[in-house]
């Protein structure tokens, strides 16, 4: 089944195209890595997928539904920074979505309901290795822990599509490798479609089932902003041998 279909999408700011002629169909359960030079519009593409911004032209459909006009719960997002609520404890960050759903008027719960939600969150926290940090504020967590929390939080609504914008960009190689395992595990369990922006080509080959490279094909030397970037390579990595060849034996 097609999870995401992008049809002739353009995005311009002040009449200057940043992205142009984007056309892709992504299968449900795919893991797409998005690579490309700085400033070529990768984050912009994620914002379009999220419906945080709307395309200047064309349309994006998720699971064949009508194009969304604002962010909604069928797509989750993890930013490089500011992804979790700094004023809530780790545990309360995780139950935020459930509290919102449980109480329309106040957006929060008390007493037994709250205790139940927190108990449920306990299991998830253990799962993502934050059990000991349940009552801490996010600012007290390391970068890797914060990103684990951000991913766990984004998954609380069971989104069809998970968008990750350089989620591990600020982590050391060791932590990053652990995070890769963590993410792959979650991905296999949930069968969601993932889009991940990364500058690390090795990371892209290691994780993804498909690599989308963004670049400008048309260039006007006298006016660098005249044309936008598009998807120049769309490389499926379904073939496991291809990935292993790149990753090398280890």
């Amino acid at each position: 089944m097609t999870a995401v279909s992008v049809h002739d999408v353009w995005k311009s700011y002040d009449g200057r195209p940043v992205l142009e002629r984007l056309n892709i169909e992504v299968e449900e359960g795919a893991f797409c890595a998005i690579v490309g030079a700085s400033g070529c519009g990768k984050s912009t593409f994620l914002r379009l997928l999220l419906a945080q911004e709307l395309p200047s032209r064309g349309e994006i459909r998720i699971a064949d539904a009508d194009p969304a006009t604002e962010p909604q719960a069928d797509r989750g997002i993890v930013f490089q920074r500011y992804s979790v609520f700094p004023h809530l404890t780790v545990r309360d960050n995780l139950i935020f979505a459930a509290e919102i759903a449980a109480s329309r008027t106040l957006g929060r719960t008390w007493g037994r309901t709250r205790r139940n939600l927190r108990d449920e969150a306990e299991a998830t926290l253990e799962r993502v290795g934050l059990g000991h940090a349940a009552k801490l504020c996010p600012s007290a967590l390391s970068g890797g822990m914060q990103q684990r929390l951000a991913i766990a939080q984004a998954l609380t609504k069971k989104p069809k599509v998970l968008l990750l914008d350089e989620p591990f960009g600020a982590l050391d190689p060791g932590t990053r490798a652990t995070m890769h395992e963590f993410l792959l595990e979650l991905w296999r369990e949930t069968a969601m479609t993932i889009f991940m922006v990364t500058h690390d080509i090795k990371e892209a080959f290691k994780l993804a089932t498909r690599i989308l490279a963004f670049d400008k094909v048309r260039d006007d030397p006298t006016d660098p902003g005249a044309y936008g970037a598009t998807i120049t390579y769309d490389l499926p990595l379904d073939d496991k041998t291809e990935k292993d060849a790149f990753n090398g034996p280890n």
């Binding site: 999220l50 945080q52 604002e70 962010p71 909604q72 719960a73 797509r75 989750g76 997002i77 930013f79 920074r81 500011y82 992804s83 979790v84 609520f85 935020f96 979505a97 919102i100 759903a101 957006g107 939080q153 984004a154 609380t156 609504k157 989104p159």
Partner: peptide
């Protein structure tokens, strides 16, 4: 940060 407002929207707020 607009990230926080967007995040809240994706969590259904």
């Amino acid at each position: 940060p607009s990230e926080l407002l967007v995040k809240a929207q994706t969590l259904g707020a």
